[in-house]
């Protein structure tokens, strides 16, 4: 019994050490975002003596934060809505239609999950331009649907197999057509996996960098990540402002995380195990 207790303390110490390492960079960035440049260069480890909120007000005035947040929301919202809706429709149908054809189509969608983004980025840029959606947040959201729908199909198809067919058949007897059955019966049953899909895509789209960089042309359309990237180039080692803007960008997702962490963590485990 004593031994267990000892190993438990040892275990805790290691975890705390790792946890501290993991949290250290975020902590450093947050406390230093309230300091002046001088304080940062002379005593980076200490807590700030006076709080320089000016770092934040200046960062706010440089990036139009409300606009950038709205842009990020638009892109992520459209992307997730399309991915969840279209992916679940296709995934459901493929899982419920036995036969060679569905299998081939399924594999066809799946194979794309291995394509590195770099392989299509040049031609994708050209495509976006050809159909006239380059440079708009809505267009960017739409592109994410095309890139993310495969994974959604994959996860829904796996999940649908665990739903008994009887429910749909009952609905059919009641005279509902297939789309109605899907909306009324299946979609609610899919909700656990749809939440997972939503979360995985939220983390991806919100934080993505390269695709928005290639697609968005106007500073006013920049997502929050892109705005900060521009600032990083502009501010040239003006650390207080850079750090403040890093904190501002990170706050929305961290807040979401604090409230939704159970769903997020379970969703990730779910997504991986089903995969």
């Amino acid at each position: 019994m004593k031994k267990t207790r000892l190993s438990s303390i040892f275990n805790l110490v290691i975890l705390i050490a790792f946890g501290a390492l993991s949290f250290f960079p975020i902590y450093m960035v947050v406390i230093n975002s309230f300091k002046s440049q001088d304080q940062i260069f002379n005593s980076v480890l200490q807590l700030p003596t006076t709080l320089h909120f000016t770092n934040y007000t200046e960062a706010f005035s440089q990036i139009n934060i409300v606009q950038a947040l709205w842009n990020s929301l638009t892109v992520t919202g459209i992307g997730i809505a399309g991915i969840v809706l279209f992916g679940s429709m296709a995934g459901y149908k493929l899982a419920r239609t036995p036969g060679k054809l569905s299998q081939i189509i399924f594999l066809f969608f799946m194979s794309s999950m291995l394509i590195p983004f770099h392989s299509i980025m040049i031609t994708l840029t050209r495509m976006a331009n050809t159909i006239g959606i380059q440079g708009s947040t809505v267009g960017l959201g739409i592109i994410y649907i095309g890139l993310g729908v495969s994974m959604s199909i994959f996860l829904t198809a796996g999940f649908v197999k665990t739903i008994p067919k009887e429910l749909e058949e009952a609905a059919k007897i009641d005279g509902a057509n297939e789309m109605q059955t899907f909306i009324k019966v299946i979609f609610p049953l899919l909700s656990p996996i749809l939440v997972t899909i939503g979360i995985l895509n939220l983390l991806w789209i919100w934080n993505d960098f390269l695709l928005p960089l290639l697609m968005l042309t106007n500073v006013n359309d920049y997502t929050i990540i892109l705005s900060v990237n521009t600032l990083f180039g502009e501010y040239n080692n003006d650390w207080p402002k850079i750090l403040a803007s890093l904190v501002i960008t990170t706050i929305p997702l961290i807040t979401a995380y604090v409230f939704l962490q159970k769903y997020i963590l379970d969703g990730i485990a779910e997504g991986a195990v089903k995969g």
Binding site: F86, I120, L124, M127, I145
Partner: peptide
Amino acid sequence: FYALFMLIPL
């Protein structure tokens, strides 16, 4: 969507 933004570019 898949065809427009994945397949054709590929």
